[in-house]
Design a protein around this nucleic acid. Structure first.
Lengths: 142, 142
DNA sequence: CAGTATCCAGGACGATACTG
DNA sequence: CAGTATCGTCCTGGATACTG
């Protein structure tokens, strides 16, 4: 297993020999590129915006309406970030009143499967998590 | 397609007829269970802790050492949250000096594939993202 | 409609000191 | 070693008001 450069992309433990395992080290440096991108993608609002835009192109107000609890400011910020990263495209129509459409770029679309997997996991295990929380709280308050 | 209750788990657009698509609506309510869990799992530090523990059991200090930039306080907080959600187990050995091992629970282990998919995506596309950022910055500064 | 600008509160977070 | 406790800061993010 070559490891020219540190990486967050790790094999599962069982795929490694004892030696390989010992040698393996993640790159968790705060300034590393992967962590910066992860922070962006794994962001609370980004996740929701991407998932919604994967369903279809939406206007600013439509997004704001569909995402409960997001403020105008945070929606703007989130969209700018995603646009900067090339995940979302912004199309302005020169009409009055203004119309701006947001859509996923091809790059953004490649995230669908990944995000879906995260959401699916959450839905599949939410009851287990609820149980775990109850037990934990009981243990602590006892 | 039945939709007894709103859900974040959405099909891809192409899988829907026009009608189904119109009827489809996510549950993005702020207080919905799925969003709460997502916020936990998609958290910056949680992601790193889970991925590291997936490689092997670690002690408190080992985790702190391996995760660049995390403070003692945040590590403790993150671990407590993950423990509460039943993703991480905490084992205390009654020795001096104390020894506490953290490991993924079976539930936590089921997250491996998902998180891995996220990290892999990030690594696969980081150059594209870097290019997009450069272009965006140039456009804005022009 | 689709933002930008400004202000401000609250929580996240780091630093530090202390303990079983 | 593995925390807890406390304090102070910074920054996220909400509320509000204004504009092309």
């Amino acid at each position: 297993m070559t490891m020219e450069e540190g990486t967050l992309n790790s094999p599962s433990r069982c795929e490694l020999t004892e030696e390989e395992y010992e040698a393996f080290q993640w790159d968790t440096r705060e300034d590393c590129e992967v962590r910066q991108i992860l922070d962006r993608v794994a962001d609370k609002w980004s996740l929701l915006v991407i998932a919604l835009l994967d369903l279809n192109t939406l206007r600013f107000t439509e997004l704001k309406y569909k995402i409960d609890g997001i403020s105008q400011r945070m929606l703007t910020t989130t969209l700018r970030h995603l646009e900067r990263d090339g995940l979302v495209s912004r199309t302005v129509y020169p009409v009055v009143p203004p119309r701006v459409d947001y859509a996923l770029t091809p790059l953004g679309m490649t995230l669908h499967k990944t995000i879906q997997s995260l959401v699916t996991w959450t839905e599949d295990h939410r009851s287990e998590i609820a149980v775990a929380r109850d037990q934990y709280d009981k243990r602590v308050n006892a």
